[in-house]
Amino acid sequence: MALAAPAAHARAEATYRPQANRLGLWLFFLSETFLFSAMISARFVTSGTDTPEHLNQPLALGITIVLLLSSISAYLSENAIAHDDRAGFIRYTRITIFLGLVFTAGVVLEWQEALADFPAGTIYGSAFFALIGLHAFHVVTGIMALGVVLNLGGKGHYGSEDYWPVEGTVKYWHLVDLMWVVIYPSLYLF
């Protein structure tokens, strides 16, 4: 026994790693959902369903559609790498990042208008900037994560048997979209 390798693991990591990764990611999503719920409930408690007169509705609908499109391309990129289609993976990930950047630019544009119409010191403005800011933070971190997997995927990492980082990142990107599904009507439509 003493001759056994000192750093030997009693159990092969492969027996639990896929399950652990997936469960861990979903637990993180559950936790994130509570963060967004807290912020969204703050919006309804302080300002009800009131919305100001000067909301750029077409722009908001536009960035919503852009985010939805980015979700499709993220889905397609995960699907591509799952079938060893590296070129497709790179193409769709680039599109996703591009659409994410367009969304971010849309938010910046919107904030410039919004600051004039309802500054952060108004009650709707508080909720608007906090909630969209929180969401935009997630968009930006999502773009960073997509950049990481794009870079590594381009260098030959990942394949149909081994694409967890892509799957996790894409799921995170879908979470960003999922939160927007609730935030968009909460801030603009209700």
């Binding site: 509705q57 609908l61 939805l68």
Partner: peptide, 28 residues
């Protein structure tokens, strides 16, 4: 296969887009 999944994804995405547009129309 990859193609079947692509088709499924596009159908879902189209459904999402339609739902979003209906949402917008109702809200306006």
């Amino acid at each position: 296969t990859q193609q079947e999944k692509v088709r499924l994804g596009l159908i879902v995405a189209a459904a999402l887009a339609v739902l979003t547009l209906i949402e917008y129309v109702i809200a306006v």
